[in-house]
Design a protein around this nucleic acid. Structure first.
Lengths: 317, 317
DNA sequence: TAGAACTATTGCTTTTTTCTATTGCAGGCA
DNA sequence: TGCCTGCAATAGAAAAAAGCAATAGTTCTA
């Protein structure tokens, strides 16, 4: 099947595509011209795809050939990268991967990052650093961190963001709270009682996203208690400061419990983030192997109706 | 250099890694055992990387070998995908790519998507459909669209989001507006005058993000004019309804102009989005070749100070 | 100490890749 | 028309490689 398409052939495709000429491509590859002809014909027949159009004016790519050319470039580059990384690993030269961890992230995401990294780069050290999201973004910009695990949203185009977890957001309350007696909390029951929040300074974008979601269901919370960590949040809820919203996955103290909010399908989202120009040798390979977020939840906006059928434009690309 | 690592060798690596045994791997590959031994030894010596550890209990991977194994699996899978796509193209069987376009996106992103698609899949048709973000997300869920270009943020873990553009947000005003006489607009000058917004119904998340950013600089706007398209926004600004915030890249009518906001570095972000389980044959290949967002801007939060140096934990992975 | 379960080595065969020489084809030009 | 020229394709031989069977070398196990 696709076994004919070896890397050797990919190199041939690239050379021919770039010289538009079998003869010159063969020179560039230090091969005789008939070799190229034969090999390419055998490939085209073997996989059943015409790759080149041979014309007097030069050799051009068919549509399928264009795609193969783009693939070939990428695949050859990646292979070099991988072999370099393998050599570095073999010599024990992989530098420490410095990862920033925010609190308020899915705890499993740290675990799965470490698993993926350990699987790919066993014996290579990871250094984990705690910190607030804004701090971690700063440190990635100044290159004192290679990557971080952060709560979404992360804005700015310089970040490569890879969504790794999405968990329901639930109301955290004392186990003896009257609300604990029902399965779900009604939004109206939250009004006036939702008071414990994470410190907006530590992640303004996420804080405001939360506020906007609350406004949508008609709650304007007074954030009178600001916590820096999930443990602080629990402590504040325990001391009757008010209710809080937390990630369903976070383990709760024994006298606390949590309930979902009726009708709301909010999530707490965690992402693996690195700077677009970060240069740790493992990053690009690691990123391809991070497990992806799995939850099936979509945040539904209340009260919107299905709009008119949109206009269809047919364009030939 | 890396030329020794042909796809054939990748298959050998996978088979040996998965059987933990050269003899059984050779059976699985329908080869004689000495062939495998030889080939792998030649590879290991050739690229200078030890891949396997041969022990009595079985063959195991070195750290570098683990990474090569992970790479091999992925590369072999991708090659099959690419060859299948090439065959489909050769037979003219690539189905139409149905892309949803929201208004309020960077116009260049449509252009660059079409360029990338045309380069990869020449002659394959694209069908562009206009619509509001919520509508487009719905249509992707029900599989009547393959992908969409949307303004960020997009929430929910089912979406594969690829950030493609990030442009400064500026204040749009009449050319004869007094504010047009200075280079920048002070946030205080916006108060009470910022009135034209896109309709929150069309993209609630983006609307609220904008509101939250305005609140940060102390502006609580009355959104008295709600527009469905950038053209409507311009029309409203022309008719003296108020000022608006728009993407710097959008072409303005001749009697309009725009100015940046002093101190704010907000951006309008555009992403290429598709459903995690979308199955158009071109998507995964297209995604790898989309040009990435380039802007160097990070949204800076006002008034935060650098926090204490965080604790460092050293973990051996 | 023999055997079992491996991988590595050896020497030979087959297959694949590449080479040189040549053919064939289509324009350009006298 | 006829003769170059610039190119890709074909043919047949040579070189390189991948593969094979037989066997040697280990190390644990009975």
């Amino acid at each position: 099947m696709s076994d004919l398409l070896e890397f050797r052939l990919l190199k041939f495709i690239v050379a021919i595509a770039e010289t538009a000429n079998f003869t010159r491509a063969s020179e560039r590859l230090f091969l005789a011209q008939p070799t190229l002809s034969q090999q390419v014909i055998a490939l085209e027949e073997g996989i059943g795809v015409q790759i080149f159009v041979r014309r007097r004016e030069g050799v051009s790519l068919t549509p399928a050939g264009q795609m193969l050319y783009a693939y070939a470039q990428e695949a050859l580059e990646l292979r070099d990268e991988v072999v370099s990384a393998a050599r570095a690993m073999d010599r024990g030269e992989i530098p420490v991967l410095r990862v920033g961890l925010s609190s308020f992230i899915n705890p499993d995401s740290v675990q799965s990052l470490r698993q993926a990294y350990t699987r790919l780069f066993p014996d290579s050290p990871i250094q984990m650093t705690g910190g607030h999201p804004v701090q971690l973004l700063d440190r990635m910009e100044e290159r004192s961190l290679d990557a971080a695990i952060l709560p979404l949203p992360v804005s700015g185009a310089n970040w490569v963001v890879s969504h790794v977890a999405s968990d329901p957001l639930v109301v955290c309350m004392r186990a003896d709270d009257p609300l604990a007696s029902s399965r779900e909390v009604q939004p109206s029951e939250l009004a006036g009682r939702l008071k414990v929040f994470r410190d907006p300074e530590t992640h303004p974008a996420a804080h405001h996203r939360l506020m906007e979601m609350l406004l949508e269901i008609g709650i304007r919370p007074e954030a009178s208690c600001l916590a820096a960590t999930p443990a602080d949040i629990q402590m504040m809820v325990q001391s009757r400061c008010g209710l809080a919203l937390i990630d369903e996955r976070i383990a709760l103290a024994s006298d606390l419990t949590s309930r979902p909010i009726a009708g709301a399908r909010w999530t707490s989202d965690t992402a693996f983030v690195h700077h677009r120009s970060a240069n740790h040798i493992a990053l690009s390979i690691l990123l391809r192997h991070l497990p992806k977020a799995k939850q099936t939840q979509t945040r539904r906006m209340p009260g919107r109706q299905r709009a008119l059928k949109p206009i269809q434009l047919e364009l030939m690309a």
